[in-house]
Design a protein around this nucleic acid. Structure first.
Lengths: 294, 294
DNA sequence: GCGGATCTCTGACTAAAGTCAGGTAATCGA
DNA sequence: TCGATTACCTGACTTTAGTCAGAGATCCGC
């Protein structure tokens, strides 16, 4: 890591902590503890389960309970029981609570305005663009890629998204039953592996391997959610899959893909994959690739 | 203000608070209250005055006192008297304190590394560049421009810097005694005005006006510190000077400048100043400008 | 229908981060 | 030189943001 980059990140942190942190507290404080604000903020208009709030904010159950009692006393929320599971409690905003949340919203807008206000229009554009860039790249650093069981909710969701997207993008649609199989059993160790990328717990991408004793390992189900494209997640997923394959004793990885998946084609080419003659009869494929793992 | 910009700033705040804030606390916490860390951090190697620490961190005097006692008990600092003013107390780091600060430094580097680490080299460059841009522009929003007495320390310092810079940049040097005067008395109301730009209290630029009853107002002493160039501060200073002049009943502003001050020339031209024949015999000037205030 | 797990709550506790009032010593300004 | 101001300190207090243990109600799998 170059020292100049590190210095830049540190100085950025310092400034942002000063500027954003201080004003955030000041503007959003409004005589109310930050914890209560955060909680109020997280209760959507349709209400929220207490356990969901707890998890999203990463707070202790006793603490959340106390915060809820306080907000209840202030008449901002009502806590009722869930119809489905009577252990679970549902938090709903009262009219006053909704008003308070709108007020927080307004203050947040006001704060953003106060940041932009001293700048000339051209500078505002430069600032928001640079902010967007920082945000995208910092978001990228928050993504975690982990081995997941294909039957897990996140894994299933990703694969469903993958299928839906291919169906939409391929001229003739995509029916996984016509395609070479990649069933849950085939993507579970020791037959294969499924890696799922998650951003704050929510799945945003996947990639899978199918092992074949004495034969090259197949790469399947590469998919990245639209919301996080362009931050190098595909490349990272590919690297992690290769690392995993190597660790399992794979020396050659191969895959096939459709001509309409231009980003994927570019990714494979840029990642050292060499186009080879068709090594299977996948009906949806136009290109076959292979890579020797170093 | 466009809603899209506001949304961008808000979403940036949220992410940065999450990512930087949380990890900052975690990494820099090291079993020590944040207040103590911040204080330790602010004590430079040559030591610091207690009042300076208090002011820089914006903390209550009682609270700082208590934090200092705690750090003293831990053997990290020594508090002694100032030679100049025996009410003032000087904080100095002990060897242990210095070691602890180096450790904080190391952790801060480690944190920065952890932010950059998951990214590919190209993305790292993009991130640090975008961070630098955000930092420059946010810094711009922290600059405050205020009317200042020319005898004030900040005002004198700016004008000294202005003179030093012209002396360095003009081929034949610059001697203010040979130039048209802009003495402290002339830059004080009602004769004139001096605006000083400050960043966190430190002066970083100035600009002055000289009023002449029934005649155009003169613009003098426009200067911006090298450390904050390129963020539109000159333009902002010029606008504020014009606003001030207008409020004092001025309808025409004029100024003269040297050909070597290319940024200033560009600024005046871009700000609606029209080049006019020489209206005085300033020996250092090559260009004379005039603007009708709307 | 029973044992274990889950969800929420209360009570008791703690550390951090302050605030406020008042006091002492030194210095500054008229 | 004397009263106001400044710098710092102590003691007493508060709020915020938690943690931990345990209880009660409910649900889930066998």
């Amino acid at each position: 890591m170059e020292p100049a980059s590190i210095t830049q990140v540190r100085s950025f942190n310092r400034l942002v902590t000063e500027r954003i942190g201080a004003l955030n507290d000041h503007f959003l404080g409004r005589d109310r503890p930050l914890g209560e604000c955060r909680l109020l903020w997280e209760v959507a208009d349709e209400g929220a389960e207490v356990r969901a709030l707890r998890q999203r904010l990463g707070l202790d159950s006793a603490y959340v309970s106390r915060l809820l009692r306080s907000l209840e006393r202030q008449g901002l929320i009502e806590v009722g029981e869930s119809d489905i599971d009577r252990r679970v409690r549902l938090v709903r905003l009262t009219a006053a609570g909704r008003a308070e949340r709108n007020e927080l919203d307004r203050l947040s807008d006001e704060f953003a305005t106060s940041v932009l206000e001293p700048l000339a229009p051209g500078q505002r554009d430069r600032l928001t663009q640079a902010m967007a860039e920082v945000e995208r790249l910092l978001t990228a650093t928050l993504v975690e890629i982990d081995l997941t069981d294909p039957a897990d909710e996140g894994g299933r969701w990703c694969i469903a998204q993958y299928v839906a997207e291919l169906n939409e993008r391929f001229d003739a649609g995509f029916d996984p039953a016509q395609s070479i199989s990649a069933s849950e059993g085939e993507l579970r160790q020791p037959n294969g592996a499924l890696l799922v990328a998650r951003l704050r717990g929510a799945p945003v991408g996947c990639g899978a391997l199918k092992f074949h004793a004495g034969e090259p390992t197949e790469l399947k189900r590469m998919w990245v959610d639209r919301s996080v494209r362009g931050i190098g997640l595909g490349r990272r997923m590919l690297r992690e899959l290769e690392d995993f394959a190597r660790a399992q004793g794979t020396s050659v990885v191969r895959l096939e893909t459709n001509a309409s998946l231009t980003e994927a084609l570019a990714l494979y080419r840029a990642s050292g994959y060499r186009e080879v003659p068709a090594f299977n009869d996948e009906p949806y494929a136009h290109h076959w690739f292979e890579k020797q793992l170093g």
